[in-house]
Amino acid sequence: MPFDFVAAPVRTARSARGLANHLAGHAAEAAVARLYEDRGTAICARNWRGSGGEIDLIGRDGDVVVFVEVKHSRTHDLAASHLSQDQIGRIFATVDEFLAGEPKGLLTDVRIDLALVDGLGRIEVLENAFAG
């Protein structure tokens, strides 16, 4: 198979951007975890994967289990725009799956937060973002 000299730099640039985005996402999650821990919420799981999705951070604030979805982009508004209705549905299903393993099951007190991280590393937390 001949080497495509035009497509190779495009693939390389795309994979470099993908790696940079991946690393920025992990850095954003780590910064959000530190913020929660500094506020007294113990992070008990990171990137918890259920059968239908993943929860970025799970913490415990007293008797409340706190689920955190982290979104990172150049601005907080752009970060929030990356959250789709389908993803919200997967988050709820994954929360239910996690709660099935808790002593109180679905009767456990929970909060689902959305943490937005901009390109400068500023964090905006929307507590109970999916309530109502």
Rank of each mutant, 00 (worst) to 15 (best):
E54P: 03
E54G: 00
E54C: 02
I55M: 05
I55C: 03
D56Q: 08
D56W: 03
D56V: 02
D56A: 05
D56N: 10
L57R: 01
L57F: 01
I58R: 07
I58Q: 02
I58S: 07
I58P: 02
G59R: 05
R60V: 10
R60H: 09
R60N: 04
R60F: 06
R60Y: 05
D61R: 15
D61H: 10
D61P: 04
D61Y: 07
G62N: 10
G62M: 07
G62W: 04
G62R: 09
G62K: 11
G62Y: 04
D63C: 06
V64H: 05
V64D: 09
V64R: 15
V64S: 06
V66S: 06
V66C: 08
V66M: 03
F67D: 01
F67R: 03
F67W: 04
F67V: 05
V68M: 02
E69K: 08
E69P: 05
V70Y: 03
K71V: 08
K71P: 11
H72I: 08
S73W: 13
S73G: 13
R74Q: 14
R74S: 13
T75D: 08
T75F: 02
H76Q: 06
H76T: 10
H76P: 06
D77S: 15
A79H: 12
A79G: 12
A79R: 12
A79C: 14
S81W: 01
L83R: 13
L83G: 07
L83Q: 13
S84M: 03
S84Y: 07
S84A: 06
Q85H: 11
Q85V: 14
D86V: 14
D86L: 14
Q87A: 12
Q87S: 11
Q87C: 09
Q87I: 05
Q87D: 15
I88L: 13
I88F: 04
G89Y: 05
R90Q: 14
R90N: 12
R90D: 10
R90Y: 08
I91M: 01
I91L: 12
I91H: 02
F92W: 14
F92T: 10
F92K: 13
A93H: 12
A93P: 01
T94V: 11
V95M: 05
D96I: 09
D96M: 12
E97T: 08
E97R: 08
